[in-house]
Amino acid sequence: MHNKIGVDHPAVGIQFSVGLSAVGENTEQMKLALTTQVNTFTQCSEYIAEKKVWVGAYTSELVGDVPESLKNSDSRNLRFALTALQKIESNVREYTKQFSKVRLGVVIGTSTSGIADNEATLKQHFRHKEYVEVVHKKQEMGSLAKDLQQYLGWGGPAYTISTACSSSAKAMVAGQRLINAGLVDAVLVGGVDTLCQLTLNGFNCLESLSHDICQPCGKNRDGINIGEAAALFLISKDQAPVLFLAAGESMDAWHISAPHPEGKGAAEAMQKALDMANLKAADIGYLNMHGTSTPQNDAMEIKAVRHVFENIDVPLSSTKHKTGHCLGAAGAIEAYICQQVLLDQTWLPLHHSGVLDPDLDDQNYVLDVSLEKPIQYVMSNSFAFGGSNISVILGTSFK
């Protein structure tokens, strides 16, 4: 039975999902991390020369090997993806047996792919002036979706989306479109990104890294912490406890790395998501902010929230002080967090406990994690370089 939430863009059911990040490898660990003040970050010195930085690292074990057919693509990013997939693999394979393999798709978001593995190879070349072979397939953006398709033995559409921090949220709505266009029956969507020197040094050059653990919308916020995550969802037309309802997208085209200062694109994305889902702002029970902890991004996002939600006291928080900014996987891991909130119905992700910016403290930040009454809809924001904005809405199938 089709989920007739949106008229032109029917909702799709999230049949199975998994989320791995600095907050853990299962829902119990994640809930504990997101509802307490426990530190989930790791301080590392191997990414930036002569500088220690806090990162949201996934510290549990990854799969030890990849199939022979994927050896040319072998990277930590691929192993992270396979580690996540294997946690739901038996369910996914059993569920998708009912469909033709050419009707099964894969859409994944990433921004780093396997570049970390080639960084080590290039370092060897530059340090020792040795000839080294760089296997470019490891870091090709398109490799991840194709590799997962090959691993599963599927034959439908398979492609990767790389639009910086909005990548995996866009992958989710892309999967919904494939289903609603009648091109596939089920899609594996989500995002995977791993820590690497390129992104850490890049944000360091932009002077956008936090000197400590980040404090989104905090008075003394000074930048982001980079994280890594792997979050995957199998979606289809079938009913499920949590539905992917809608997404709204916009493009600032204001600046290569800065958002529109008034949050125009961000507000447009949120409103489009509400319109697509046939909802009002008052229907949203929780808003997961993009909340990077940079001065410009936080300020513009709160302006956008004020515009869209006006006098509505929506509970909101950023979870990046726990996961880190997971770049291409940020949208997917935060959607996964929102899904768990809807499934559990007892908690909301805690905003950090630091002092808030007095110019931004007029919002209903989640400082008490207890969920006093059930919620049906949640919204999650992802805003990327160049103003590539997306807001997604998930909802329960029960009233």
Rank of each mutant, 00 (worst) to 15 (best):
K4I: 09
I5H: 05
P10E: 03
V12I: 14
Q15W: 05
V18N: 04
S21F: 02
N26V: 03
V38N: 15
F41V: 07
S45T: 06
V53I: 15
G56F: 03
L62K: 11
V63P: 09
D65H: 13
E68H: 14
S73C: 13
R79P: 04
L85I: 12
R93T: 08
K101P: 06
L104I: 11
V106N: 12
I108F: 14
A116W: 04
L122G: 10
H125V: 08
V134Y: 10
V135A: 13
K137L: 13
D147E: 15
Y151F: 15
W154K: 09
A164V: 11
A171D: 07
V173R: 08
L183T: 05
L183R: 09
D185C: 02
V189S: 14
V189A: 15
G191M: 05
D193M: 04
T194W: 00
C196M: 10
L198H: 10
N201K: 13
H211A: 01
C214S: 14
C214F: 02
C217M: 12
G218T: 00
D222T: 00
I226Y: 07
A230E: 02
D238S: 12
Q239S: 10
L245N: 05
A247N: 04
A253F: 00
Q271L: 12
K272N: 07
D275A: 10
K280S: 12
K280C: 08
A282F: 02
D283K: 04
M289P: 03
S293A: 15
R306A: 10
F309V: 13
D313F: 11
S318G: 06
T323S: 07
L327H: 08
A330S: 15
A332W: 04
I333A: 01
D344E: 14
L348G: 03
D359P: 00
N364V: 01
V366N: 13
S370C: 09
P374K: 12
S380L: 02
N389G: 06
K399T: 06
